[in-house]
């Protein structure tokens, strides 16, 4: 029962995070989702991941959000969706139902736990993953630095560079069209 109520709470938080008009509030709801999921993970027996999820998902990422929102500024206006709501709901529902259909026959009994501990698996069997994570973090840092770098001179040139690219396809289209016209005549 505890598990079900935890799940319901997590789903509620997720829906609130999507619905919340204020970004800061949405970020807080997200932290809530993260915390509840961490508890669920703990209950599943994944103690280490639960701790990491709680600290990273609920802690670090929330701080990042707050930081980013304070930099970008709050926008509270509720924008109407571009995609028609029924289409969006239909797509999502269909995907989820199909996935559920695939998960349906999963009630076979859990296999016996293997004895190897988490650290052994991470550092010995999945060593390549650990390496990939390090590379990923570096890439992320570099990406952020690149994006946040001050680039005043680039702004204008990039705006100008859009101009010819805009016109080119139109000219080509015009030529094709005119040659077709000539042929018709």
């Amino acid at each position: 029962m505890l598990q079900v109520s935890l799940l319901i709470a997590a789903v509620f938080c997720a829906i609130q995070a999507i619905r919340a008009p204020r970004l800061l509030v949405a970020a807080i709801w997200l932290a809530g989702v993260s915390a509840l999921v961490a508890v669920l993970l703990y209950l599943l027996g994944a103690h280490e991941v639960a701790v990491i999820e709680l600290s990273v998902g609920a802690g670090l990422v929330t701080v990042l959000f707050v930081f980013a929102i304070s930099l970008a500024g709050e926008e509270t206006t509720r924008l109407p969706a571009i995609i028609p709501r029924p289409l969006a709901i239909g797509l999502v529902a269909a995907s989820v139902l199909l996935l559920a259909w695939m998960l349906a026959p999963t009630d076979n009994p859990p296999a016996a736990d293997d004895e190897s501990s988490f650290t052994v698996v991470v550092w010995q069997e999945r060593g390549a993953d650990a390496l990939a994570q390090i590379v990923l973090i570096f890439a992320g840092v570099l990406g952020v630095l690149g994006i946040l770098a001050e680039e005043r001179p680039v702004e204008k040139t990039s705006a100008e560079a859009v101009q010819p690219g805009d016109e080119l396809p139109e000219q080509v289209g015009f030529e094709v069209e005119s040659s077709l016209e000539r042929e018709r005549v």
Partner: peptide, 20 residues
């Protein structure tokens, strides 16, 4: 991971995912 009895393998993949 829990279902297949390899909870630690599932954990390690999950950690990678969280980082990414």
């Amino acid at each position: 991971g829990s279902l297949s009895g390899q909870i630690n393998l599932g954990q390690s993949l999950a950690v990678t995912l969280i980082v990414a």
